[in-house]
């Protein structure tokens, strides 16, 4: 796949060294190109890229609030349509909090209405912008500032909310999961999403050095471990047709992923085993 050299997210942004969110945005914008309007939900990516009077965005961009990016995009898309600019891509970048929690209603409405928007949830599995609080997408066992481990707690006690499947249940014509560590897979999905007549939803797994607790150089490694252990699965659902898009040759033990991050360090073997069993079960169903 030929990957465009041109950057649509400029350097100079305030993301942490090794930030995975900006990698995701960069790669997505490369596929969408200049004929794009981007909508951001409040969160890390929004804050680090638009410190007034500067912006990192080279495409038109709007931020309104935390929970309404899908609704804002609905308005943008229809307004562009009303001006005969149907060919413009409207892409949303919202965090897992802005998607799985506070923004779920507006996302559901927008997807149901069938706007031609590409909604990318960049999932770093917590509210990073406000200091690593848990979200509905925080995985089981992770210690966050609002699901801390302690004498009475092993961290987050609920499994990750399955947003891509909730999107699929809306009948969204294109639903996919992706990882910044598999850029070709992700970028192909963005391209497909852009070619859809209706809405598209991509759930992008995005390691976060600050929130997960690993060395900044390991951002890509961490995303790869998630996929190679089966903790994160790459698939797409095109018009209801489910397909795994990447199968690790040999699935690694989930401990390799968990032990590499501070947020799981506290877990007892018993909890880690539970996680492994859960991963095994999901992977068995998908023959991974």
């Amino acid at each position: 796949m030929e990957i465009p050299e041109q950057e649509f997210l400029a350097a100079g942004h305030r993301g942490c060294a090794g930030c995975g969110a900006t990698i995701g945005a960069r790669l997505a914008l490369k596929m969408l190109g200049e004929n794009t309007v981007a909508v951001s939900a409040t969160g890390c990516l929004e804050v680090i890229t638009t410190p007034y009077p500067e912006t990192s965005w080279k495409v038109p961009w709007i931020h309104v609030a935390f929970e309404n990016s899908a609704a804002v995009a609905s308005g943008v898309e229809r307004a562009l349509k009303s001006q005969g600019k149907d060919d413009v891509n409207v892409v949303v970048f919202a965090g897992d909090g802005g998607t799985a929690d506070i923004g779920l209603q507006s996302l559901s409405g927008a997807m149901e209405r069938g706007h031609r928007i590409i909604y990318i949830c960049y999932d770093n599995e917590a509210y990073m912008n406000t200091g690593v609080q848990r979200s509905g997408a925080t995985p089981y066992g992770a210690s966050t500032t609002t699901s801390p481990h302690g004498k009475e707690s092993f961290g987050e006690d609920k499994p990750k909310k399955n947003i891509p499947m909730i999107m699929a249940a809306h009948g969204v014509p294109y639903v996919a999961t992706a990882s910044i560590s598999y850029p070709e897979d992700f970028m192909k999905k963005v391209k497909k999403a852009a070619e859809m007549e209706g809405p598209a939803y991509i759930h992008l797994h995005q390691p976060c050095t600050t929130g997960w607790g690993y060395d900044p150089s390991k951002t890509i490694e961490m995303g790869r471990l998630a996929v190679d252990t089966g903790a994160w699965i790459l698939y797409e659902i095109v018009d209801g047709e489910f397909k795994v898009t990447y199968r690790p040759l040999q699935r690694k033990p989930v401990n390799e992923y968990l032990n590499a991050q501070k947020r799981f360090k506290h877990l007892a073997d018993e909890e880690k085993e539970k996680i492994q069993n859960y991963v095994n079960q999901v992977c068995a169903e998908l023959k991974i």
Binding site: A11, G18, G20, I23, R26, T209, S217, I220, E221
Partner: peptide, 29 residues
């Protein structure tokens, strides 16, 4: 080029040190 969070490595492998934060992803990958 693909993985740099700053987008500061060109396809021709030029690193723009004005922006490189030294995260080490490029070396790692």
């Amino acid at each position: 080029f693909l993985f740099c969070p700053e987008g500061c490595i060109t396809k021709e492998n030029e690193i723009d040190y004005d922006y490189c934060k030294g995260c080490g992803i490029c070396a790692e990958e």
